[in-house]
Design a protein around this nucleic acid. Structure first.
Lengths: 253, 253
DNA sequence: CGGATGATTCGGTGCTCACCGAAATGTGAT
DNA sequence: ATCACATTTCGGTGAGCACCGAATCATCCG
């Protein structure tokens, strides 16, 4: 047990909030991170095109994000693949996005408008389901007593039974690093959707059973006919949550 | 139901992550927010002195933070009081701080060293208890089966019974806006402490029963003799969690 | 009514940083 | 070997912004 010595060179450690925030304070870097919320690995070139900046600029941004611990990289041949560093990074991004102000952006083409509508309807959020579909799932589960009331992140006994009945693996015993069940603010609908280990397990289940399919290179999810049947039978989801054409623009703030 | 029209001026909304992050990307503004994590209202002058910048500079920072929605202000006479806008803002800050890298800062005086040690030992985090004491509470509650295992934010039946036995108000039925029980990363100890509505209720209880007292103008909590007795009897907390002099520097990352 | 105090406005300064293009590096394919 | 392709390095440029001091405004106090 050492005592404090006034003459000794002495330092303490504080979390450098500003350093982390500075990583996201740039439009281009923020856009890169939002794109990576699909959970996949992108190459530097893909991100350069997506963000509409020169490849050299992208390199600099990726260097910052990787050394800041937000992104993980993997070099394969002449390619540089980057992805989000982990679930904590993803959830922090989502929560931040839910709290952030909205910005109006012009929609330039019909294709882009359709893309946006599909995103609002159903998409992946790192490793779970977001968008109107994700929000509807949480609300249906709450109504049916599968989740603790409202946004309280509690999986009830009935909820656990429902999951095992579906054949969803138990999400293990709650792991050391990941909260069992969690919700995060959905940035399109401004309501909560299911994340955490249970959210991830449910998404995996839906994929494996063909309830939804994921388009390559985007985060868009499409609900299949089988999926509609399953979501109606299991959770009584309304049509608004099952058909992209019925998804509306988010309510004004 | 309107159809999309290609010629119509058309906009969509995206969360402006960069705008929110830019608010925190500055050292001074980040320091201000961290200071306000004590949950209290500070005047502009106090923050100027705390952050070691000119009053005029502080004004500019506060304008940005308030109009960005992170801070709420209240003008009383010639004073400008600011506080965090709400629990969501506070929890976002805490989570961000937990994910942020550490920065070494020099400790210039014995007083500052003592201050730091006290902060590490026990402090308020907006409206609940953080520091070694807060972490010890979570761990003791987990060991005793009052909280769902590990960091899973589940309050067990035994936990609910324990709280009512203490006379802690039920934290209401889980409110619409606030998660019932939640944990957030403690930036001194890098482990989780209890937040959410239950964490807040527990802190209020401890204050009202004189288990802890809060020093004015800081976030430091001092455990009283009565508090030591109570924490030992109720949770079996070890002395390390009850005496500031035994609080050690955080382990190296 | 002064005089003190807290906060704000404004002009000006220096630094940081996002960006690009051109050239260079390294890897894969022919 | 040679060409194509993905990425990186580097120098330079321009814009944004954190900061201060001096002056001003508003409020409280004697």
């Amino acid at each position: 047990m050492k005592r404090w010595d006034a003459d000794q060179e002495s330092v303490a450690e504080t979390p450098d909030l500003a350093a982390l925030a500075a990583l996201l304070a740039d439009r281009t870097r923020a856009a890169i991170c939002m794109a990576l919320l699909d959970g996949g690995a992108w190459t530097a070139g893909e991100l350069a095109e997506y963000a509409a900046v020169a490849p050299s600029t992208t390199t600099e941004h990726l260097n910052l994000l990787v050394s800041g611990g937000l992104l993980a990289e993997e070099r394969r041949g002449r390619r540089r693949y980057v992805r989000l560093a982990g679930p904590e990074a993803a959830e922090t991004l989502e929560n931040l996005a839910g709290l952030a102000p909205y910005r109006r952006v012009p929609v330039r083409s019909l294709a882009e408008a359709n893309h946006r509508r599909a995103l609002h309807h159903a998409r992946t959020c790192y490793d779970h389901i977001a968008g109107a579909l994700g929000v509807a799932i949480v609300e249906a589960m709450s109504e049916r007593g599968l989740l603790g009331r409202d946004d309280g992140p509690v999986l009830t006994a009935a909820g656990a039974a429902w999951l095992t009945g579906l054949g969803v693996p138990d999400a293990g015993p709650p792991t050391a690093h990941r909260a069992h069940v969690r919700t995060c603010l959905d940035w399109t609908v401004r309501r909560r959707h299911l994340s955490g280990a249970v959210g991830a397990a449910l998404y995996r289940h839906a994929l494996e059973h063909g309830w939804v399919v994921k388009a390559v290179a985007t985060r868009i999810l499409t609900v299949t006919a089988a999926g509609r049947t399953a979501f109606r039978a299991q959770l009584g989801l309304p049509d608004e949550a099952l058909f992209p054409s019925l998804a509306l623009a988010p309510p004004r703030a």
